[in-house]
Design a protein around this nucleic acid. Structure first.
Lengths: 192, 192
DNA sequence: TTGACAATAGACCGATCTGTCTATATTGTC
DNA sequence: GACAATATAGACAGATCGGTCTATTGTCAA
């Protein structure tokens, strides 16, 4: 009988792959992907080195998987946050989400920006993830500005991307005030 | 006779300290301060290891000195760029400078943002440099918005900081279009 | 019980990292 | 020429890096 689902249990209730991703997420986001070595991830995940290479093949792929899950979770979080907001007001409401993120205890800036700036190889698998997330953002901003009925919706959407990047990058060095500043301007922009 | 200026000549016409800083600037900015090791800097500068530690003491100090010179040069470049522009229009003109920077061949994003995100130690000497440059920017924006005569000059100045950060961070991943987008919004903001 | 599979533990490899050290060469001043 | 200062060249140390490997343990299904 070929390959039943094969239950996963072991001593812990969560699989080693998820533990590795959890550990990588915490450490890579907090300290950067170059500053954190494999051994640190293994210790944090309480896992064996062979498990990491069995599931991810190499560190670069672990980095890409870390980013992939981060961005997926972010999309889900944003969509849930905006679900009860009418489409015409989602553009502004999104910046409430950004403010909350910037004010959260573990906020450390944008994981995409950090990773792209640390890994200059244009063929690195993490770059494709980052690119995909950027496109998703661009598309959402287009939707929101169109729904808001502003004139020049495309240019406004591009401007909101700039505001978002500025909010996140600025909050990392100056504190969450920058996110509020971005929201202030987004409100102006979406009013007209 | 204690300590005459003591001419510096040697085989090359530029001192080893400047050669080290030039090499560090190129490599650190292009690839990041963690990705580039001491040996790479020494080879690029054609200098000896003892010279580096004689002049800078440790790598962290070299990083701080690299940032210090970068930011000093940036200030001079900006001030020269704006010298012929009347104060009331400097806020917008500044974003022309940003666009030109983002379009330049070697543009790789903001060295301050990169370094701060790579070195999480709050006591790292490079952080003080970054903080100083951020304050300088904030002060200039305050001047420019005040001179432009916009109402709510302080809030507008903070918004321009966000636009600047977004222009630079966005241009790094999406290309210089983001800097133009930021300029577009700055124009709107400074018009009213 | 047995065998397949997934996980752990950790030795090991070669490379690279920051930093220290000794030894030598070059330079300008006396 | 002698001296002090500054530079170079490079061995060396101790730690860490990513990655491979062997050996062992624990779990489940037949």
């Amino acid at each position: 009988m070929p390959q039943k689902p094969r239950k996963r249990a072991k001593t812990s209730e969560v699989g080693v792959r998820d533990r590795l991703l959890d550990a990588a997420d915490r450490l890579f986001y907090r300290e950067g992907v170059r500053a954190v070595g494999i051994d640190r991830v293994l210790a944090e995940a309480d896992a064996a080195k062979a498990s990491l290479y069995q599931h991810f093949g190499c560190k670069d792929q672990l980095v890409a998987s870390y980013l992939e899950r981060r961005t997926g979770d972010a999309r889900a979080s944003i969509e849930a946050y905006l679900a009860d907001t009418p489409p015409s007001q989602r553009g502004l409401k999104f910046f409430d989400w950004v403010v909350e993120w910037a004010e959260s205890k573990d906020f450390r800036g944008c994981p995409l920006q950090h990773t792209v700036s640390e890994l200059i190889d244009p063929a690195h698998p993490a770059r494709a993830i980052a690119h995909g997330q950027r496109e998703w953002f661009t598309e959402r901003f287009r939707e929101w500005t169109t729904a808001a009925g502003v004139k020049d919706a495309k240019a406004t959407a591009r401007a909101l991307v700039v505001l978002f990047d500025g909010a996140v990058a600025g909050s990392e060095v100056d504190g969450p005030q920058r996110a509020s500043d971005a929201r202030w301007m987004a409100k102006k922009l979406l009013a007209g």
